[in-house]
Computed example of a mutant assay.
Amino acid sequence: MKPLVYAPCLLAILIGSTSFRSTHYLNTEHATKNTYYLLVIKTKYEMKVFDSTGECLATYPVVFGNKDMGDKMMQGDRRTPEGTFKICFKRKHEKWSRFLLIDYPNAESVAKFNQRKAAGLIPSDAQIGGSIGIHGTWPNEDYAIDGLQNWTEGCISTKNRYVEEIFDALPVGTRITIRK
């Protein structure tokens, strides 16, 4: 398998289209869960791929569930959770090209949820939710990414060609940090 070409961390958004200069390669043949890690910055609509030395190898445009960039509070709020997670499962997806499930809710998420519930910030019968991941768009709807149109139920969405690249490069166990 030949290595995939990735973009550097300079992201240019030009009138509804995304432009990358390709200069880095990700080794997809021998990648382990510690070879790369992801950083999602919600307020910048960016997902960055770093190598184990901390060098930023790629930046992808992403969208979320809604314009409220707050942390996920409960199931159904369409917010994207914040914290550190791992990719726990990958599969091809019939609607969104590829799906990389993250381990939300993890222990950190459950603790925050329980604290918020105890403080009365969310209803006592609220559920924490789950099935959060990284995926593509509906077929032929990459324009949602170009237009920064948040449309998911709390997942991270990018263009189909980008989710296919990261799907091939990032193994299960890869760390992902999501922050505001």
Rank of each mutant, 00 (worst) to 15 (best):
P61C: 06
Q75C: 00
F64H: 03
Y36W: 05
F85Q: 08
A58T: 06
S52E: 14
F20R: 11
H30L: 12
G70P: 04
F85I: 00
T28N: 11
I15D: 13
T84V: 10
H30E: 14
D51N: 12
L39K: 10
F64R: 05
D51V: 11
K67L: 09
P81D: 07
P81F: 01
R21I: 15
R79C: 09
P61N: 07
R78S: 04
S19V: 15
K42Y: 02
F89P: 00
T23P: 00
T32Q: 06
Y25I: 12
L11E: 07
L38G: 05
G16D: 07
G70R: 04
T84D: 07
G65E: 07
H30N: 11
N34F: 00
D77C: 10
K48H: 14
N27Y: 09
N66S: 10
D77E: 02
V49R: 00
K33F: 12
I87S: 05
V40T: 03
L14W: 07
L38V: 10
I41A: 03
V63G: 00
R78N: 12
V40P: 08
M47R: 09
I13G: 01
A31E: 07
P61V: 03
T43L: 08
I13T: 06
T43K: 07
C56F: 06
T18S: 08
M74I: 11
K44H: 04
F64Y: 08
E82M: 07
A31K: 05
H24L: 07
H30I: 11
M69S: 02
L39H: 01
A31T: 04
E82R: 00
K42Q: 04
K86L: 05
E29W: 10
M47F: 04
E55R: 13
G76Y: 07
N27T: 00
L38F: 06
A31G: 10
D68Q: 08
T80K: 02
K67W: 01
E55M: 12
K33V: 09
S19N: 12
T35P: 03
K48G: 02
N27I: 08
N34I: 01
M74K: 15
Y25M: 14
T43F: 07
A12Q: 14
I15R: 15
L14Y: 12
M47N: 01
I41P: 01
P61Y: 00
L39W: 07
S19I: 14
L26P: 02
V40A: 13
S22P: 13
A12C: 04
F50H: 09
M74N: 08
T53I: 01
F85W: 03
K33W: 02
L14S: 13
C88Q: 14
K86F: 10
N66K: 11
V62Y: 03
N66I: 05
E55A: 14
T59G: 03
I41W: 00
P81T: 05
T84R: 05
S17R: 13
V40S: 10
F64S: 02
R21Q: 11
R79K: 13
T23I: 15
T59F: 05
M74H: 13
L38I: 13
L14A: 15
K72Q: 04
E55Q: 13
G65A: 00
P81H: 02
E55L: 14
Y25L: 15
H24D: 12
S17A: 10
L38Q: 01
R79E: 04
K67F: 09
G16V: 06
R21A: 14
